[in-house]
Write a protein that binds this DNA or RNA. Structure first.
Lengths: 118, 118, 118, 118
DNA sequence: GTGGTCTAGACCACC
DNA sequence: GTGGTCTAGACCACA
C-alpha cells in the first residue's frame, strides 16, 4: 500500500478491511491486528489506524473488547456488502453513466476493457 | 451550480467547462466569461475562478490573450476528450471492475440500472 | 509577431523598433508608421501602439510632429545602442553569469551553441 | 530575500529552492520547511508559499506526504538541472546571441566582464 | 502539527 | 475593461 491516492489514508485502510471481508479472508469474530501492529506494518501513524478502527466500528464492521482488541463483527460480510453496494449504486454508478455518456462510450465497449485488463 | 460535492469548487468549475466542451456547447476560440463575470455568476470569489482558469490553461484547454480575456483553445474538444478518457480508463474503470467483482455484480446487470436511471 | 511572450506587448513592439534602428533599417528622421497603421498591421489595440510610441519618445528614440506623425530622432542609433548596452551589462549579463555558474556551463561551451544555432 | 525583483514572489521562492538543489545544499528526501514556517521566515503570506510548493510539486521537484509535509523528490538535482538547462538553451541563450549581435559585442569580450564581475 | 481551499479585498500592469 | 499577484484571515480534513 502506497497511499499516493487522493483518498485519505484512513479510508484506504478501511477499504483494505472491507476487501478482506468481502473475499472472505476475514470472517466473523476473527481478531484484527492491534492498532500498533497495523501502524508498524503499514508504516503509518497509529492515530491514523485508530481512526480507521473507529470508523469501522461505527459501521459495525468490527467491534471492540476492552483491553483485548478489535474483532470482526457478526454478519460483517452482509453489512459490508450492503454498505458498499449502496455506495456503488447511489454514487459510483450515476457518475459512471454520466462519464461514459460524455465520452461517448458504449456499455458494450466496457466489456472489452474488462478483458484487456485481465 | 451548488458545490455541495466534496470535490473542491475550482475543480467543479473546471468540470463545468469540460462538459461544455465535450457536448460542443463551447467551441474553439469562443470567449470564456471574464474572471470577474464568472465569479459573480457563480457567486464565488474571483480568486477561485482564477484558479480554475489557470488550471485549464495548464491543460491547454483555454488560452489567454493579454488584457483581453480567456478563450477556448484550438482542438479543445480533442484534448478534453483525451484527458477525460485517460482518467476514465486508467483510474475510474479499474476501480469500477474491482468494485463490481467484490460486490459480485455482473456487467450485464449494470445495463438494467442504466435504464432505470433514465 | 505573436506576443505569446511573457513580456508585455508594448515592450515587444518597442524592441521591434530598437532592432530596426540597430540594424540601420530605420535612420534618423525616417517617418514611423502611424499609430493606426501600426495597430492594424500588428493586429493590436491602438492604445498599445500609442504606449510604445510614448515610451520610445521618453527615451528620445522617436519624436513627434504634432498633426504629422512620429519620426526617428537624431542619433537614434547611438542612443539605442547606449540604452540596450546599459541594460545588457547591468542586468542581462550578471544574470547570465549566475545561470551558467549554477548550471555548470563553461563560457567556452557557449560558443558551440552559437554555431549550432546558426 | 528581498523580492525587489519584477518577478513574482512565488517564483522567486521557487528559484531559491532550485538554487539550493543545484548547489546540493538540499538533497533527495530532505524535508522542506512547512508552509507556515517558510511564510514566517520569508515574511510572506502562507498562501504565497503554498503556491510555490504546488508549483514545485507539479515540476516534481518536491513531493508531499499527507499530513506530514513536503520533501525534496528523488533525483531532484537531475530534474532541476534539466528544467533550468532547457530554459537556458531554448530561451535565454537565443536571446543572448541576438542581443550581442545587435550590440556588436564579441563573445570573447564577454569573458572580460566575467572577470571584472568577480 | 500538516496541507488545502476559500473569501474578502487590495493593488498592479496591461490592453 | 482584462488578468495576475499578494495579504489577511478563516475553516476544514487529515496524520
Amino acid at each position: 500500500m502506497d497511499f499516493n491516492d487522493k483518498k485519505s489514508i484512513f479510508l484506504q485502510i478501511a477499504d483494505f478491511f472491507y476487501e478482506k471481508i468481502l473475499v472472505k479472508t476475514m470472517k466473523d469474530n476473527d481478531r484484527v491486528a492491534s492498532v500498533r501492529e497495523m501502524a508498524v506494518a503499514l508504516e503509518v501513524n497509529p492515530n491514523t489506524v485508530m481512526r480507521t478502527y473507529q470508523y469501522l466500528q461505527e459501521q459495525q464492521i468490527i467491534y471492540n473488547k476492552r483491553g483485548i482488541g478489535y474483532f470482526i463483527a457478526e454478519q460483517a460480510y452482509d453489512k459490508a456488502l450492503a454498505i458498499k453496494k449502496e455506495e456503488f449504486i447511489n454514487h459510483d454508478l450515476p457518475e459512471f453513466f454520466k462519464t461514459i455518456d460524455l465520452l461517448n462510450i458504449n456499455i458494450e465497449d466496457i466489456k472489452k476493457y474488462k478483458h484487456e485488463n485481465k
